[in-house]
Design a protein around this nucleic acid. Structure first.
Lengths: 200, 200
DNA sequence: GCCTAGGTGGCACCGAGTGCCATTGCTAGC
DNA sequence: GCTAGCAATGGCACTCGGTGCCACCTAGGC
């Protein structure tokens, strides 16, 4: 069957690239689970995935990105959800709702999520990069908050609201890793409650 | 007995080591200012300081530590100040007071502080390590908060209070870098005010 | 004067990350 | 079909941060 869709090429290419990326990710996570993060070299990962070492760096910015890029999906989802919240809602409430809804992300395949989270918390370089990532997220959320309530909130207000909400979320996730049976959304609720109480 | 001597020796040695550490730090910061952080190699720093490359790594855990170890002095000071606050004081208020007092640290030689802070914010790897450092601080402060009000506050409460207070502080510092003329302690006050207002 | 101890720094090595370039494989145009 | 062109690939070589190892030097105790 000949391809009549001439301009459809990019989507085809992208699909292939996406599958390569997924393959690399799977092999990398397997190796990290088997031998640990530091003990698995990029060479190992590339060889396991059947690609060249050089190619690995074309698909991921670095070794840590193999683990961390998934988190960005969560953040993008949460930002979209925040944007969809009614603008009458107070900033922190909107953040809590958006993050709670987005936490569904972790609950599809919780085993996988927990393994990645544990790996991240246990590995210094990985944790450092994750914190950097969260720091970037703060600006994303602050931006949306600023759009939402420009009549009410100043720039500093948006920044601080985004920052503390993400801090509450991060704490909830850490607790979840230690006690998954409590449920992530319940832990988010608890952390936000503690936040409101602590600031009073 | 020669025992009493054995205790006196280290102070002399430590003094010498401290001066070496300072020398390395000065040369490193000078080079970073002249050519930038990434463009200055550890070799360059060691050569400038008149020591071997291997010795550099005996004085600092890594290239980033030359810049970041100063911040730990601030945190240690702030923790001590927090411990000294009256335990009747609400956690967040105590944090604000302690951090405000400790901010004096940045105001001795503000030029130097601003240069280091700008360098840190402009350099990805440096920023990542600084965020890691701040993350460690959260546990320090949370620990003190837990001791302070064990009858009132739970572990989660302490964690969240420490985290958001440090977040407010970090935001204040960032604003200060952009507008030093506003004054750091005033910015801290503003950020905490915004925090209280935003959480309400 | 020898001997132990600790600081030092040279050397070699590893692994992450990057620029360069030849090869390959796929698409498009004839 | 056939080929010219283009992007993905991956090998190679290099830089740089970081570490283990070891030989050396210096100081203090016997």
């Amino acid at each position: 069957m000949s391809k009549s869709q001439a301009v459809a090429t990019p989507s085809l290419l992208e699909a292939k690239q996406e599958s390569v990326r997924t393959t690399i990710g799977e092999h990398a996570l397997r190796l990290f689970a088997e031998r640990g993060y530091e003990a698995s070299t990029v060479d190992d990962i590339a060889r396991a995935a059947g690609i060249g070492r050089r190619t690995f760096f074309r698909y991921f910015d670095g070794k840590d990105a193999v683990v961390l890029w998934r988190f960005d999906q969560f953040a993008r989802r949460a930002v979209a959800l925040l944007r969809a919240r009614p603008s009458r809602e107070p900033g922190l409430t909107a953040m809590e709702r958006a993050l709670t809804e987005a936490s569904e992300f972790y609950n599809q395949d919780p085993e996988q999520s927990l393994r990645i989270l544990k790996l991240t918390e246990a590995t210094r370089s990985l944790l450092a990069q994750q914190l950097l990532q969260q720091d970037r997220w703060k600006t994303w959320f602050a931006e949306v908050l600023r759009e939402r309530g420009k009549h009410v909130e100043g720039s500093l207000q948006s920044d601080i609201t985004a920052a503390v909400a993400l801090e509450a979320m991060a704490l909830a996730v850490r607790r979840w890793v230690d006690a998954p049976e409590l449920g992530l959304s319940a832990l988010i609720a608890r952390c936000f409650a503690a936040l409101r109480k602590g600031v009073r």
